[in-house]
């Protein structure tokens, strides 16, 4: 049943003393979809993920995962989750194979099944030739792929990835994205936190934009951009002193502008046309760039801040 809701949260709140990490958020994740939490560090994404992973108790509100409450049925829920934490927590002294083997056994999987699954996962993660290598000898990208492979050994209903590509080089990121696409095609429900907008756009069917523990917006990446930004963006630089001087004049020429320390973002459906009008007004920027709107622009609009500060 593709519309079945695997995760439902209502008024979910987590407080640490006076600090509210997650503030009365509501959301639902459907079976087979790829759902993303987008926001800067400290937005409450990882805290929300840990509550879903049934390893952190909520302060108030309701949450149901696979129809169960994690407050009293945590181990049962965890039996059907695959978790990829922000920081790899592999056993460094063990081999690649042993890391997968012992993890599979924690789920109570039969030894024979685990052994055959390991071969499949090693190929999937492109680690077959590293099967007997100790984890401490692997590169960052390999460790990340191994952590994902480990999370898949139990064929989880929901795969949770907390900042899956942080610290990886572009090639390693693309390999990972490819693997996650394949899982999604197989019907695995993906839950992803990221502060990379390209990753969120690439991987997520639906996104929840979070800031300071609250939900700012929720929709598909394309619809978020449609709702909260224009089709295109013109980035212009006049030099740090002149940026603020010309901003009043620029405001009259487009729907909206954002003055950043190093550049001005101008929002319009046709940015080329806008650039021509700037030149006609004899405002000659030092550099200019026309691009399509991204989730970064959505975030800027919603919070007044950049995602990566």
């Amino acid at each position: 049943m593709q519309n079945e809701e695997l995760i439902v949260a209502k008024g979910l709140t987590k407080k640490y003393g006076d600090f509210t990490a997650v503030n009365e958020i509501d959301f639902a994740v459907r079976k087979g979809e790829s759902f993303g939490f987008l926001g800067p560090n400290g937005a409450g994404k990882s805290t929300t993920m840990r509550i879903i992973a049934a390893t952190l108790t909520r302060t108030s509100g309701q949450i149901s995962i696979l129809g169960k409450d994690p407050a009293d049925r945590g181990p049962e829920i965890r039996a059907h989750l695959g978790v990829v934490p922000q920081q790899d927590n592999l056993d460094q002294a063990l081999t690649v194979t042993d890391n997968l083997y012992i993890y599979g056994r924690y789920f109570g999987l039969p030894r024979k099944f685990v052994k055959s699954k390991i071969d499949e996962l090693l190929e999937f993660a492109q680690l077959t030739d590293k099967r007997n290598a100790k984890v401490e000898s692997l590169s960052g990208g390999m460790k990340r792929r191994l952590t994902i492979a480990r999370a898949l050994i139990s064929e989880p209903e929901i795969l949770m990835l907390d900042e899956p590509t942080t610290g990886l080089d572009p090639q390693a990121r693309h390999i990972l994205w490819d693997r996650l696409f394949r899982l999604k095609e197989q019907g695995v429900t993906l839950l992803i936190t990221t502060h990379y907008m390209d990753e969120a756009e690439q991987l997520c069917d639906r996104l929840m934009v979070m800031d300071k523990g609250s939900i700012m917006a929720e929709d598909s990446p394309a619809d978020l951009i449609k709702k909260f930004s224009t089709k295109e963006v013109l980035e212009v630089r006049f030099g740090s002193d002149r940026n603020s001087q010309v901003s009043d004049q620029l405001k009259t020429m487009c729907e909206r502008i954002e003055v950043l320390p190093d550049r001005i973002l101008m929002y319009a459906d046709d940015a080329e046309l806008l650039l021509e009008s700037i030149h006609r007004a004899s405002l000659h920027p030092l550099t200019s760039l026309v691009r399509r709107s991204s989730l970064e622009d959505v975030f800027l609009r919603l919070t007044g801040r950049s995602l990566i500060e």
């Binding site: 039996a79 099944f113 999937f124 064929e155």
Partner: peptide, 28 residues
């Protein structure tokens, strides 16, 4: 590269049995 075979954790994991044997898995 082949895709992963998949029956799903709801099928392959005997949850009740697994929950009872946790200590044994850690020892192993």
């Amino acid at each position: 590269m082949t895709d992963l075979s998949r029956r799903g954790s709801l099928v392959i994991i005997d949850t009740d049995r697994t929950l009872k044997r946790g200590v044994f898995y850690v020892i192993e």
